[in-house]
Design a protein around this nucleic acid. Structure first.
Lengths: 154, 154
DNA sequence: CGCAAAGAGTACCGTTTTAGTCTCTTTTGA
DNA sequence: TCAAAAGAGACTAAAACGGTACTCTTTGCG
């Protein structure tokens, strides 16, 4: 479906909630579950994944919790999507690793798919968590950034 | 997985093969199955879908077959992906229709997702079947087109 | 110390989607 | 009339998704 999974959507919503928590304030899985209306076990699973990939910093033990590992400006949609659902690859053959697609010899579209894949990855890279958690004004900034990066590339 | 399904990949490969068939020459499902090494029943299913959405023209009966309904330049990746796997929507809430996402009130990211979704759709709209079936030189054209369209939008 | 809160890791299961097949019908050229 | 070919739709096995449960480790605090 060319779609991000529901869990990824949840995960990014959690990140956005954490991005709006200023001053290094931590939130527990419990806090986030209640704030976002997502079942606690699911929240835990997502936060664990995000922490393992160094997007979140976790503190264990009593008075533990989670906070962003970097500023929201320094975390891109690409980082989050990759963490939550693995490498972004439109097709088998556009993944980084070698693929075992039986059509590879015949179809000849690998490079074209890779090109489209890169375009898409750029869109995600140029959209930060800060923008995702933020306002319409910040969306305009993203648009400008993307536009510039494409010009630079050409 | 932010991935196009295998069947969509196959479908586009079939379209590319038909794009390289010049002079209104028709190919049968059988021909395409043999040419691409994709099982016949699967090929049939895909061609039916593409024909129903007016990307292919079909002729029934003996000596029947399929050919492109328009030129390869006039068929975009967006047309094909949409036909083969339905509307492109990164999340439930970025589909055109109203969604029943329980987070809608809380997460506040709907507009941001829509924006990313539009960027992605533009990438697909600006890449034609001709480019997909064609050479590296044509890829550069796609890059230019996309870049221009983004500038215009800003 | 010992308890309770909180994260880490992993395994499990029901549901949905995907990938692929099969059967039957309709159309049409020879 | 027959055979080739498309159209429509049902059906099935396998994989992915969404969610849960269980066990273990870490740590603050009385």
């Amino acid at each position: 479906m060319v779609r991000v999974t529901k869990l990824t959507d949840y995960g990014i919503a959690l990140m956005a909630r954490l991005a709006n928590e200023h001053g290094g304030n931590q939130l527990t899985a419990q806090d986030l579950s209640e704030a976002m209306g997502i079942p606690l076990p699911t929240v835990r699973k997502l936060l664990k994944t995000l922490a393992r990939d160094d997007l979140l910093e976790s503190t264990r033990g009593a008075a533990g919790g989670y906070k962003l590992a970097r500023t929201a400006e320094e975390i891109s949609m690409m980082d989050m999507v990759t963490s939550l659902e693995g490498p972004v690859a439109m097709t088998e053959c556009s993944a980084d690793r070698d693929c075992d697609c039986s059509l590879q010899e015949i179809c000849g579209m690998k490079e074209n798919w890779s090109f489209i894949n890169e375009q898409f990855k750029n869109t995600l890279k140029n959209f930060s968590l800060a923008q995702m958690a933020g306002s319409l004004a910040e969306k305009q900034a993203a648009r400008d950034t993307l536009s510039q990066s494409l010009e630079a590339e050409t």
